[in-house]
Design a protein around this nucleic acid. Structure first.
Lengths: 340, 340
DNA sequence: CTGTTAGCGCATTCAG
DNA sequence: CTGAATGCGCTAACAG
């Protein structure tokens, strides 16, 4: 492997000149720079990442950190991580994956102390996350993917749950639906303060009133059988319901079945839209489900971009970015049925 | 941050003694070693990963590499990657994620040439994968997760598809089923030579004969509607079918619906077992689906362990390990119905 | 069994 | 605008 020394020798300049030609942190005449560039190409030179890190005290590596707790929102997608890797790569960074098996900051300490990474991207932030005070204390730059009310001063990117709920209601409303039921996740999840569940619930209350929708704001445990039971009960109690907004992929099949078993059909009698869902889920059903899907790529590019901006100090404000989900209209939604 | 120098000074020994006490690559007397260990703890010393790498020419970082192509088998799980990270971490390694967006070995070259990693774990290996000759040529140690007939000489770990199919047939057979249909993935996937589809198909042919099962060996496109159509057709043609083995989570809801619409019920009339599936999928349906699930954790520990063994040259053979899926009996399977 | 020392490949001072 | 020299923190010869 060619080193910077080889390049310098062949180009007839000093090592530092080559170094500056690469980094640009000091003016180099156009012609020597061009010459050096050519020699680098001839030698197929690549800077040695490790050596560069040791000298510069910056590794150009960021860590993406998954905590012990498994959440129910569909954040657990491989594509999110590959997006992160791609985003990092595009900015000249590497992405290492850390997965914490316990909820103990010492696990994190073990990793951080090796000084392998310049910054950390925290996934699945949860209430009173021990990782946040730890990173603050040690002054490790970090960014949250997801947010929590217990950490109001941090940088984050997150799904805009409120706007997503608003859009779903408004869109259904535009199709004539006036009686809409929101099937959120479980009450336990809500009561534990899990952000997405709390925010969507509040948003549904507010926006359904704003849009003059008669809304039912319900919880449902993450289980197809529960989805069935709940939906059947709702249909029995308020048969005028013409649309369901569902924030839990696991209950969809139960919801669909309950609607069909009640003698109604989708979407002519009842519409279903799944929020914070995914194409993979949507296409598993008949009919294919209309969804609002997380903008995983955009969110990740933001998260990684902001984190790296922080590292390179070209940014000084605390970035907080919310991105609503995007609508994918499929076969489970239609205009509200005519009133008899 | 304390450095090795600080430890040496405080312990009253030389730097190299500390180094050897850590690595164990040269004998150190028990008492000095104990003393050094104590001093390290007092100083809360952690070796600097980068400096160590530069000096030793080993980074103790491995890359997990996802290719451009998206495969249909459920390998796309986040848990696989976190397992890989955990396995690596347990062995003192870090895991970086590389995601190739093109099918070009030059992308890989760009990464490898930075000499950031000691070895590579290739995911989702496909026919005539360009990455394999490249890595061989450059002498980069690597390991395959999944395998392909176009690379018969490499080290790999993989799901034992044949044994999984055998077990599924045998298990159903033990419950009295004699007419079993295997719903594989699409014919196009098979004809393109995709290993899992080819191997399961062949295995079904062989083992259903061995076990005296009247088997239908069918393809089905990855779509719930196709699953419905296909299942309905099969039920019409061969109504004596009492069990379906399905290797495609995307069609399950169609299969279930077709069976129910034909007036039969699950599992009393017809059993369903999904192979190479997952709990997440299984619990999305009513009834919960009996599955054979990939031993992701075990496979990953094997893959990472073997790769690292290779790196550290405590191993010289080419490891090839197959692990069949494990049965999770749920509600979609039961004894074959009595013959009329 | 332990100490001394020369790099690993590069970034970055200090001189010119 | 460019070159020479120092050292990042550690490993691994070499020397005792």
């Amino acid at each position: 492997m060619a080193t910077i020394k080889d390049v310098a020798a062949k180009a007839g300049v000093s090592i530092s000149t080559v170094s500056y030609a690469i980094s640009g942190s000091r003016p180099i005449s156009e012609e020597t720079k061009a010459h050096i560039t050519r020699v680098m190409e001839e030698l197929d030179y690549r800077p040695h990442a490790i050596a560069r890190s040791l000298a510069s005290k910056k590794t150009r590596i960021i860590a993406i950190l998954y905590p012990a707790v498994e959440r129910t929102i569909g954040l657990s997608e491989l594509s999110l991580i590959t997006c992160a890797a791609n985003a990092a790569s595009a900015l000249g960074y590497h992405l290492v994956l850390w997965s914490m098996t316990s909820n103990d900051a010492r696990d994190l300490d073990r990793l951080v102390r090796q000084e392998l990474v310049d910054g950390v991207l925290l996934m699945d932030v949860h209430n009173n996350d021990v990782r946040i005070p730890y990173l603050n204390e040690r002054n490790i730059p970090f960014m949250l993917f997801g947010r929590d009310k217990s950490c109001p001063n941090e940088s984050f990117v997150d799904v805009d749950f409120a706007v997503t709920v608003y859009q779903a209601i408004a869109w259904l409303s535009g199709k004539g639906h006036r009686e809409i039921c929101f099937l959120n996740q479980s009450k336990e999840t809500h009561d534990s303060g899990y952000g997405p569940v709390v925010r969507t619930r509040d948003a549904f209350t507010v926006f359904s009133a704003d849009l003059r929708i008669r809304g039912r704001n319900e919880f449902c445990a993450a289980d197809a059988a529960e989805g069935y039971r709940k939906t059947a009960a709702i249909l029995a109690e308020t048969p005028e319901t013409t649309a369901f907004i569902v924030m839990n992929d696991r209950i969809l099949s139960g919801v669909i079945k309950a609607i069909e078993d009640s003698g109604k059909s989708i979407p002519s009698d009842v519409s279903i839209v799944a929020i914070v869902s995914s194409e993979a889920t949507a296409t598993m059903f008949i009919p294919k489900i209309t969804t609002y899907e997380m903008e995983g790529r955009e969110l990740m590019e933001l998260a990684v971009g902001q984190l790296i901006a922080k590292l390179e100090e070209s940014y000084f404000e605390v970035p907080r970015r919310l991105v609503p989900c995007r609508l994918f209209e499929r076969m489970s939604t239609g205009p509200a049925p005519e009133k008899e």
